[in-house]
């Protein structure tokens, strides 16, 4: 007779309980609750939920036809794309320089620490700091530009749509290129040195190695950077909220979707229902885009290998079963 040992499997379940409970309560439930609030007309300090009298999807229809919200979504994408492209480009170039063993650079460690510094500082503080630095009429930047003779009179940066946008884009870029650079450096260091040696033997120059060895072999990590940046960027709030007056001024130039949702739900009328509908629309947009990037990111070779392994496992188990049927347990 086969003696059954103590089963420890139940501890697998027991130790997972806190995670599962916290996840269901604090992450999954709020998603469905937000969706549900989107169907209601919840406003102000009410908590009772009633389906919106003008129809279940009234808030969603309202959001999708609301110019301010649509502009907000477009602004969010604009601000993200305009900071992501220069950010990843500079990060790639710096990463290539920092990993090139033939180049003798001084202070690599120091530069890494300094480039990453803005990323660790509270975004809220950075936003208020830059709004002070670009203050009109007597801020440090106006002071310097006048001293250097670039401008004759102080410039009101926050009264112009594009200078405000550029500033937000610059801050996002400034806060994140160091992070992206470090991530890419570790990606490049993971490339097999043999590939670079082979390129050397073939007589490739630095630029050719960068284009045909470094970039293709960091594809996965580039897409990882992109997906995390996308999810963060489409929820962009702190900088555009705090750098001007909290409503994405001037003239909604930097009113991102998150700033709009915040102002809908948590200021003025506290219109939770419309804010919830807008939130769910953003949720779907982010989900779909991440899924697309995720799909592109998956390693095709690895997926194929996984399939083969699974098939083999299945065949093996089938064999085992047949053996068991034959009574050959010890085999």
């Amino acid at each position: 007779m086969k003696r059954k040992g103590v089963s420890y499997a139940k501890y697998g379940y027991i130790f997972s309980i806190p995670f599962v409970v916290a996840f269901l309560l604090f992450q999954l439930y709020p998603i469905f609750y937000t969706l549900f609030i989107g169907f209601t007309n919840l406003k102000g300090f009410d908590t009772a939920l009633h389906i919106h009298p003008k129809g279940l999807f009234y808030n969603f229809k309202w959001a999708l036809t609301n110019d301010t919200f649509i502009t907000g979504v477009k602004t969010t994408f604009l601000l993200w794309i305009c900071n992501f492209i220069p950010q990843i480009s500079l990060a790639l170039i710096l990463a290539a320089w920092f990993t090139n063993e033939r180049m003798k650079l001084f202070g690599k460690g120091f530069f890494k620490v300094v480039f990453y510094l803005p990323n660790i500082i509270t975004a809220a503080s950075v936003a208020v700091l830059f709004s002070s630095l670009f203050y009109y009429p007597v801020g440090p930047v106006n002071d310097l530009l006048q001293k250097w003779g670039v401008i004759d009179a102080p410039m009101d940066f926050f009264n112009d749509k594009w200078s405000t946008r550029l500033l937000v884009i610059f801050i996002q870029f400034w806060m994140w290129y160091g992070y992206t650079m470090i991530v890419l450096i570790s990606g490049i260091l993971g490339i097999s040195p043999e590939l670079f040696e082979a390129a050397d033997i073939d007589g490739a120059n630095g630029l050719q190695k960068f284009l045909f060895v470094t970039i293709p072999n960091t594809k996965t990590i580039l897409l990882y950077t992109m997906i995390t940046s996308l999810i963060g960027g489409l929820q962009m709030f702190d900088i555009p909220y705090l750098i001007t007056n909290g409503h994405g001024e001037p003239r909604f130039a930097i009113q991102t979707a998150s700033v709009f949702i915040y102002n809908q739900g948590f200021t003025g009328e506290h219109n939770y229902a419309t804010a919830a509908a807008c939130s769910m629309i953003m949720f779907v947009i982010i989900g779909v885009l991440s899924a697309i990037v995720f799909y592109l990111m998956r390693d095709k070779d690895e997926a194929a290998l996984h399939k083969v392994i699974k098939a083999q496992e299945k065949a093996y188990r089938q064999k085992l079963k047949e053996q068991k049927k034959g009574g050959n347990i010890n085999g």
């Binding site: 992450q27 998603i31 609750y33 908590t47 948590f266 949720f283």
Partner: peptide, 18 residues
């Protein structure tokens, strides 16, 4: 679930907490 954008569902979370 690693990639769930948490900030986006703040409305539901806030209402629950409230």
């Amino acid at each position: 679930v690693m990639m769930i954008p948490a900030q986006v569902v703040t409305i539901g979370f806030y209402q629950m907490v409230y």
